[in-house]
Simulated assay, not measured.
Amino acid sequence: MLIILFKYLNLFLINFKLRFIMTFLSSFCITFFFSPLLISYFNQKKISQIIRKNGPITHYYKNNIPTMGGLILLLSILISVIFWSNLSNKYIIYSLFIMILYSIIGFIDDYYKIIFNNSKGLEPYKKLFLQLIATTIIIVIIYINNKEKLYIQFILPFINQIIKYKLNLTIYLIISYLIIIGISNSVNLTDGLDGLVIMPIIFISLGLSLLCYFSGDIFFSQYFNFIYVKNAKELIIICLSIVGSGLGFLWYNTYPAKIFMGDVGSLSLGAIISIIAILIRQEFLFLIMCGIFILESLSVIIQVIKFKYNKKRFFLMAPLHHHYELQGIAEPCIIIRFWIISLILVLFSLILII
């Protein structure tokens, strides 16, 4: 009897298409049906968004909207991946591991904001220190357990040529720090308007799912001149779980939002999509996909440097989406336009490989 069950289990695991569909549906349903319960619970416990005092005046009405909705996103992803993926695949373990580590950091940050009724939360240097530790742990584990040579590949636009560079541990760590810590914090900065960040995450996850398929297939990896990454196709399960849970969450997070994801959601989602890009050696294309997040971070950096230099601001307010708000552009209009730009960047990155 056990032999028969094991045989059918193996046949089920081989059926990628069925698992992809079920992963998407299960993650969507968990988030869609359980989010109202979480919203109700958070309203009762007064776990709500802490609006920064120097932020746009139009945001003050959001002060009582529940936050930390990222918990249901993470739970949905975790359940779907555990149930539908092959947990013997090391890439799945790496991805879930960094998601959990970053969710803990995000949870601490959100907890500090709520407990102390302060929008600053965890001190930036403490948050960065925890992120450095979490990233170092997972990257060192990946590097040690990788029997093949690690490369980073750069795709030259319109030339159809890929340049590959071999990496040692130091360079691998530096690149990983820049991508994982940089993108996770950029996602966190972008999460300032209703539904603004979750749709680009969905677009990027769909783009990454295609790259996972191409990188994990011998024929397609040779055709596109990718580095072949054995068993990378299994990461599509994680990508589709992010898409499903993200769409379910967007139902309640879209303008006007009934719940926000908080740092527990934005930091962990930024980290998990980053590690997927690193695992399939597609850092260059991934950074193009994340153009909106990078632009938001650059706006903050430019604002800080400009203000320290001559006590004047380059933008009306940073991050960039607040600048447009203060120009009088309606919040839904800003959100949709950022979504459009994000979709264009994802499509453009995929066009580069053709």
Score class of each variant (00 low, 15 high):
Leu326His: 04
Ile114Cys: 06
Ile280Lys: 00
Cys212Ala: 14
Ser95Asp: 05
Phe32Ala: 14
Asn146Lys: 15
Ile301Met: 15
Phe32Asp: 09
Ile82Thr: 11
Gly195Gln: 00
Trp84Gly: 03
Tyr177Thr: 11
Ser186Met: 10
Leu13Val: 03
Glu325Cys: 03
Asn15Cys: 07
Ile276Gln: 03
Tyr309Leu: 15
Gln282Cys: 11
Leu240Ala: 02
Thr67Trp: 06
Phe12Gly: 03
Val300Ile: 02
Leu87Arg: 07
Ser119Asn: 13
Thr190Glu: 08
Leu206Glu: 00
Ile334Lys: 00
Lys164His: 03
Asn64Leu: 12
Ile183Ser: 01
Ile198Thr: 14
Gln222Met: 09
Lys147Glu: 14
Ile181Lys: 01
Asn310Ile: 08
Tyr112Ala: 08
Phe32Asn: 10
Ile152Asn: 13
Pro36Glu: 03
Leu169Val: 12
Asn43Cys: 06
Lys308Ile: 05
Ile354Gln: 13
Val304His: 04
Glu234Tyr: 09
Cys239Val: 08
Phe214Met: 13
Met68Glu: 06
Gln161Thr: 14
Trp339His: 02
Phe97Thr: 15
Tyr223Asn: 11
Ser26Lys: 04
Arg313Ile: 08
Ile104His: 01
Leu96Trp: 07
Ile159Asn: 09
Leu167Ala: 11
Ile340Ser: 04
Lys46Glu: 14
Asn43Leu: 14
Phe116Cys: 02
Ala232Leu: 10
Lys7Arg: 12
Asn10Asp: 15
Ile329Trp: 08
Ser297Asp: 09
Phe129Arg: 01
Phe33Lys: 01
Ile51Met: 08
Tyr324Ile: 12
Ile155Gln: 09
Ile21Phe: 15
